[in-house]
Design a protein around this nucleic acid. Structure first.
Lengths: 176, 176
DNA sequence: GTTTGTGTTTAGAATATTTCGAACATACTG
DNA sequence: CAGTATGTTCGAAATATTCTAAACACAAAC
């Protein structure tokens, strides 16, 4: 790799990953290194290049493989694991949308459900405060469900229009 | 607020926010509290309810206001600042997409540009390694630019189709 | 103009996360 | 089977983040 240019790239990827909320700075640097390297790189070489311990690279690279940003490949002459950067960013993005964003949205929905159930124990549904809470929970749940459906559609290759998720009030979002 | 139900909700929002990559657990709890509260709540009351110091709430609530998840309102009889949850989640989502995701994508693009510029200093463009690096940088930049354009379109209310950002090879993505 | 109520800043304590090196496990080599 | 090369796990050290209480700043009240 062209050395000085490489340093710029690693720094940049590190910063970008660090603020992404999904991966860490070091993972960004690892990816940056591999991405500019034509041949697969061994764990020790990565550790060397980034001035990190082998164990730290081992841990962090697992996350990268997990998100399909890096592939583990075996190199004929060597017993070591080697790694190369994936180039299918689209796939990575889908993975993140599925496993991070949608997971998060479902968590919100589940929380609304559970809260509503718990609230039902405490107060009658004619209670003014109870009605207020129910209405708020509904609004939030609906938003989350809408975005979730939108991402799902997008993942499957369909177009997503904002007002489909947003503008239309409630009943349009029925299952069928 | 219905007490037990509230606790469930705060916990859930805390967890959801914590894994969101944008806001913190505490900010999730603050939002959760305000969201189920019909009336604006003072800073000290929030600190009380969440068992946190006033200063901590002060710091954390600033982020919430920043992302438009919470509004500061003034309550007639009182000198204190009061806060209420915003209900326009759509707006919040746009804000996050603009200020977080797109910012991040631009950072990637800028890094590619700068790396390419730096690489140009070091090696001739006929150099095999140099060509490889250039090609990779192009691919990454193009992906980032595509997603960026997609989000922009979405923000403006237009539909976004995956293959527009992804499938079509390069030249379709011209400015006009 | 002093006092009182309020939000913010700050310095350090508490807590969580990252990183390292050593110990360990496993699989290949001879 | 003994020995070596390799990746992973583990406990401690280093670092970063979150949180608190006290000091501060500012405005309203008296």
């Amino acid at each position: 790799m062209v050395k000085r240019a490489g340093a710029v790239f690693l720094e940049g990827m590190g910063a970008a990953f660090a603020t992404s909320g999904v991966l860490s700075q070091l993972q960004g640097r690892i990816f940056g290194l591999l991405y500019l390297e034509p041949e697969p790189v061994s764990l020790d070489d990565i550790a060397d290049a980034l001035d990190q311990s082998k164990s730290n690279i081992s841990i962090n690279i697992r996350g990268l493989v997990d998100w399909h940003l890096v592939r583990r490949v075996s190199v004929p002459g060597s017993r070591r694991d080697h790694y190369e950067a994936a180039t299918d960013f689209w796939r990575v993005m889908q993975e993140i949308m599925e496993r991070r964003f949608r997971w998060n949205l479902r968590q919100v929905i589940a929380t609304c459900d559970e809260t509503e159930r718990t609230a039902a124990e405490g107060a009658s549904s004619r209670d003014k405060e109870r009605r207020f809470v129910d209405q708020r929970l509904d609004a939030l749940r609906q938003f989350a469900a809408g975005v979730d459906a939108g991402i799902e559609a997008f993942s499957q290759g369909n177009a997503v229009s904002p007002d489909l998720m947003h503008g239309t009030p409630a009943k349009k979002r029925k299952k069928s």
